[in-house]
Design a protein around this nucleic acid. Structure first.
Lengths: 220, 220
DNA sequence: CATCCCATTTTGACTAGTCAAAATAAATCT
DNA sequence: AGATTTATTTTGACTAGTCAAAATGGGATG
């Protein structure tokens, strides 16, 4: 069976390729996995020997179908565990990422399935990240962000694409969670500032960088 | 933090010392951890350097207070996870041991506490094994077994001290689980056979070895 | 008390994963 | 095109954990 390290590399190749089948650069992979670049090279060559990735030297890596299958299974575990931790154990949504990072490598497929059933087969985790289906389908709908959506129209937050506890804590304190509806009242790209207004409450200013991490869809 | 291997060695020293503070032999430890004896020696010396065990060369090992604290924490995780898997995820009690073996090294103290609360602070796991308290107290009441208890008196099963799926499956199929009441009708040490009778149902014969793994108390 | 047996320890070697730092190739910029 | 910057790969070394097999020592036995 795949070791924890192998599962981590595969998962990060999947996340970094973001739906496309572009090559993922070694540098990006190394820093995602938190190792020095040389280590990533060594590991990727080993994964290529196992048939889990395709390595184009000096250009990058991409998952093979088998590698992708494994990576999706790990990602499914990660996101279902996060959902469980928030919805059943009532844990702080800012903390569950680190927790799931460990658990994703320890739960069996059977526990995974039972957890999925217990939670009612959720489509997304508490941050709005899509949960891969058991068959390995991963919805990759393209959403607008608070930095790009049309202004002065009601939008609903569907996803927060950033998992640092700091950011999530900030988001929670300002009521920015999947499901929240609001509208962008002002957007000043020069100053790098986006201003929001929720139905109730005072206006809130956000940096464009932060706004870009919050995905939205038009409110019905 | 302690690695998975370290946690496993400590846990098994704890289990093998069975409440007493006798030395645990290297051979017993090695086979519990499923390594060759030389490996256990190497590891135990390393643990001794860390101050987690006391090693008396050629005689055995024993936990230090710090090692015991860690071991109890791992055991608490193991048994609470088993309880969760059976009571919440409705998994087969014969399978949960292997599952918990992985999870015990992946869950944080916070998840542990929340799991404990969710389950209503259980005293024992589904096999009747006592769950260490958060403060590290481990009830070590001495029970009779079906091989040693007084015959022709009602007794209640409190614990099954054997975790192989085969044995547990057998026990379940014959209705031998914590809580079941029954009495020993016959005990033939020469033939190595113990015969049982539950209130309802036909008599059941068991080897003395198997009977010795089922702990009982007098039925009220 | 000498001997033998068996548990334990030692030794040497191996695997997985990692880092630091030197070597190399690719891309970019005059 | 030539020079420089930057990403990637290579090399050598290290740690944790393991096994196989030889060496050792204690306790039981004669």
């Amino acid at each position: 069976m795949a070791t924890i390290a192998v599962e981590n590399y595969l998962k990060h190749v999947l996340l970094l390729s973001a739906g496309s089948d572009d090559l993922v650069s070694m540098g990006a992979l190394a820093s995602a996995v938190a190792v020095v670049p040389g280590t990533a090279t060594t590991m990727v060559k080993a994964l290529a020997d196992e048939g889990l990735v395709e390595h184009q030297p000096r250009h990058g890596v991409r998952l093979t179908p088998e590698g992708r299958r494994l990576a999706l299974n790990v990602l499914r575990k990660h996101r279902l565990v996060e959902t469980f931790l928030v919805h059943v154990l009532k844990m702080d949504w800012a903390k569950v990422h680190a927790e799931a990072e460990q658990l994703e490598h320890a739960i069996s497929d059977e526990v995974l399935d039972r957890l999925d059933a217990l939670l009612g087969h959720p489509q997304t985790d508490p941050h709005g990240d899509p949960i891969p289906s058991p068959q390995g389908k991963l919805s990759s709908q393209v959403y607008a962000t608070l930095a790009t959506c049309v202004a002065d129209r009601g939008v609903r937050i569907v996803r927060i694409t950033e998992q640092s506890p700091e950011f999530l804590q900030f988001a929670e304190q300002n009521g920015l969670q999947p499901g929240t509806t609001l509208r962008v009242t002002e957007r000043n790209l020069t100053a790098g500032l986006v201003t929001l207004k929720k139905k109730a409450g005072r206006p809130l200013a956000l940096s464009v960088v932060a706004a870009g991490k919050i995905l939205v869809e038009p409110a019905k």
